[in-house]
Write a protein that binds this DNA or RNA. Structure first.
Lengths: 106, 106
DNA sequence: GGTAAACGTAAGTAGTAACTTACCGTTCGT
DNA sequence: ACGAACGGTAAGTTACTACTTACGTTTACC
């Protein structure tokens, strides 16, 4: 059910969004705090956070008038698994090709 | 030197490109062969392959009139490392938050 | 209850990205 | 040498994305 995931790949492709996520992975922060650390406006941060939230990459916790965002490992799981698959497959294929053509000398 | 990397994140964010890469990770293929397996034209595949190549995610080997593309682990390395950093950081922060607020009941 | 802070959303814009068709160069086979 | 296969690039179009400013809503505080 939780596995709809609006594509964590696309969500983390944007540099600003990746920067936001990396900061939230270290420590939870409010929207205004994030905006103060970044070269974009606060609404821009809100929009990025929505994308991250739709990808299950962040969670929100209301705290008075502020909303504290934190990184959520859930959205990362599938992506991480797929990347590991890519990695091992690429490594295997790469090694096979390297053995198949042992040129380099001569 | 090889470590310029045109952002593997952005390169793999596109679904078609990710599909191309996943196929090349399993087995090397020519451009035409890739195009025949995908719902896009051959030039589109060529363009995707260029992006993947700029990100060091694929390599080419000429073979007669064909060009055989294969997945290259190089472009994946940095991205994989960064993702692992995200993962462990997110996990740690997530656990800390979970312990800090043991509500759920009441 | 009024004010201020925090945040989300609407509306509009500029830049980019993915795709198509058309064209050109290169390599192999006969 | 000629024709065909293969593939990269140019040009053009459409769609989306990241951003801004403006506005409305909610919560806290006095």
């Amino acid at each position: 059910m939780t596995t709809y995931a609006v594509d964590a790949w696309a969500a983390l492709a944007d540099p600003t969004r990746r920067e936001i996520f990396s900061r939230l992975a270290v420590r939870a922060r409010s929207v205004t705090e994030l905006a103060s650390e970044l070269p974009v406006s606060r609404p821009a941060v809100s929009q990025h956070l929505r994308v991250l939230k739709d990808a299950d990459l962040v969670r929100v916790r209301p705290e008075g008038t502020r909303r504290i965002y934190a990184a959520d490992p859930d959205g990362l799981r599938a992506m991480r698994a797929e990347l590991e698959t890519f990695w091992s497959a690429a490594l295997t294929t790469f090694k096979m090709l390297a053995e198949a053509e042992p040129q380099e000398s001569e």
